[in-house]
């Protein structure tokens, strides 16, 4: 090595220089590949018009005490239940220690009698049964998902079965005493 002619001006440590150049080129290529790949990946995320379809108005006036209705929001069912005082009392009597995904009933409602939930099982996305009086309501007087057997209570909290989380509460606001806007 030592007796090989070194071109004038080049550092003797050509190994380190080579490594640096290789590394810089690789890094640069990686950034370039990333920049090219990103638009493709991103194009698969929800488009702007899909995002724009994001809110639904619901009139609660016709829903009698003890009744439930299902409305569609973002392609998913939303459960709205007009709860009786007994429903509320039973949901509030449950100690948090018994819950898999602890949350108080109060934290899941804006007005005690109106429970609004996304009707999608947090296991693998089936629609739980329990909206109709004739449906099974599971072991906890709420909803029952027949797909793999998850039971939800009167506050939509997971009590038994493979689902890990409570039924989600969508963002909603009361636009008047008997109207809500979801989303």
């Amino acid at each position: 090595m030592a007796d090989m002619a070194t071109p004038p001006g080049s550092a003797p440590d050509t190994g380190g220089r080579r490594d640096f150049l290789t590394l810089a080129t690789t890094a640069f290529t990686a950034v370039g590949v990333g920049a090219v790949v990103w638009p493709f990946i991103s194009s698969m995320n929800p488009a702007r018009d899909t995002l724009a379809l994001a809110s639904t108005e619901v009139d609660l006036a016709p829903v009698q005490l003890g009744q439930a209705v299902t409305v569609m929001w973002r392609g998913k069912p939303v459960f709205i239940r007009h709860r009786t005082p007994e429903n509320v009392a039973s949901a509030r009597a449950t100690p948090l220690t018994e819950l898999k995904d602890p949350a108080t009933d109060q934290s899941r409602v804006q007005k005690d009698e109106w429970l609004v939930l996304i009707g999608v099982c947090t296991h693998l996305g089936c629609v739980p049964l329990g909206q109709k009086p004739t449906d099974p309501h599971g072991d906890y007087d709420g909803w029952f998902c027949p797909c793999h057997g998850s039971h939800y209570d009167a506050a939509g909290r997971i009590r038994k079965g493979p689902a890990p989380l409570n039924l989600a509460v969508p963002g909603y606001t009361f636009t008047s005493d008997t109207k809500i806007r979801i989303g």
Binding site: I41, T50, G75, K76
Partner: peptide
Amino acid sequence: VTWLWGGFSVDNPTLNR
């Protein structure tokens, strides 16, 4: 999941892809 669906549930974008 949202990315796979191209939306908030299995819907038209999902069917297309």
